[in-house]
Simulated assay, not measured.
Amino acid sequence: MPISASALAAPVMALAFPAIDPVAVAIGPFAIRWYALAYITGLVGGWLYARRLVSAASLWGGVPRPSVTDIDDMLVYVALGVVLGGRLGYVLFYNPGQYFADPLSIFAVWQGGMAFHGGLAGAAVAMALLARARKIPILSFFDVAATVAPIGLFFGRIANFINGELWGRPAPDLPFAVVFPNGGPVPRHPSQLYEALAEGVLLFLLVAAVVRVAGFRRPGLVTGVFAAGYAIARSACEFFREPDPQLGFLFGTQVSALEGGVTMGMLLSLPLLIAGLWLVRRALDREPRAGEETA
């Protein structure tokens, strides 16, 4: 995206990008990157929290709930769904031309390129298959996953920052703007950290508050709150995030640092927002399942 001359002017203050090696651990030719650790930490952290949630009968009332064993299996299903769906979503929505020209590069996941919306769809399909096999209501799985998903989002966005990718728009006058190694000499919004706060911390607290008040006695309520909350948080952060260079703005053009057209992230979040609001309305229109479920 073209950068204005004013954006190239020397900033009053700017932070140098922290020199963090993207490789966390290297033993000979074997290397573990922070990005991979973020995925592992998010999945394991969510799995442990999910086990506690399904063990708390008071949160469920009379709603059928997954067992701890179901949650153990869900970890494997979700991991596969996130990776496959995230990669496929990135290929189809963000860079189809490159991958259709070189199909084998689709499998080069170590080079980066994952889409949250694709990963969410992949995880949803995986959980639906597991729920059908175990004869458990799909929304019971979805509500648990929605409660723990912000954990993975938080660590994923921190990994994006460490990798120096998905940086923000130019912000030469911002005291805490960051000059990213691959983002040119212009100080930029650390939008990855904004997303870690909004999609990770704040969304986690919002969903946890809903669980604390309503539990899982209204199937779909937690899922709806998460979906709508993520869509709003992601769309808000898109105003600070630099659009993908191969796409730019889908509609409209940038006028200032906080203005611009519609991005792919905003477009993909719209159906998520609609679905989330519909689920919330549907859940609130139904009476909660009272009583404590017995084993």
Rank of each mutant, 00 (worst) to 15 (best):
A108N: 14
P103F: 02
A159N: 11
V44T: 12
S269K: 03
S4R: 12
L53H: 06
M1Y: 09
L206S: 14
L250M: 15
P288D: 08
Y230V: 06
I3D: 12
V144D: 07
Q192R: 04
G215V: 02
F30I: 15
H117D: 08
L270W: 01
A257L: 06
P175W: 11
R212C: 08
V186M: 07
F17P: 00
R234C: 01
Q246F: 01
A133E: 13
A123S: 14
L48A: 14
L258A: 09
L250Y: 09
A9R: 11
F180H: 03
P175D: 13
A128N: 08
I274F: 12
M264S: 08
I138P: 07
P137R: 03
L104R: 10
F239S: 03
G291K: 04
V78W: 00
G86I: 02
P29C: 04
L270H: 08
D73A: 03
Q98E: 14
A50T: 06
R134C: 11
M114P: 00
L193H: 00
P245D: 09
L284Y: 06
E292Q: 13
L84K: 06
P22I: 04
A31R: 09
L80A: 15
P175R: 06
G97K: 01
V186A: 00
L84N: 03
E292S: 11
A149G: 04
G164I: 00
W60P: 12
D285H: 11
P64E: 12
A171L: 03
P66L: 05
A146P: 07
G261I: 05
G164L: 04
V91T: 01
F155A: 10
Y99C: 04
G168C: 00
T253W: 00
L130R: 06
D285L: 10
P181D: 13
L129S: 03
A38Q: 04
D173N: 15
F154S: 00
G28N: 08
H189D: 10
I162N: 00
R234L: 02
S235F: 00
L166N: 05
M127K: 03
S191C: 08
M1P: 09
I162V: 11
V225H: 08
F107G: 04
A24N: 12
Q192I: 02
R52N: 13
N95T: 03
S105W: 02
R282I: 01
L202I: 09
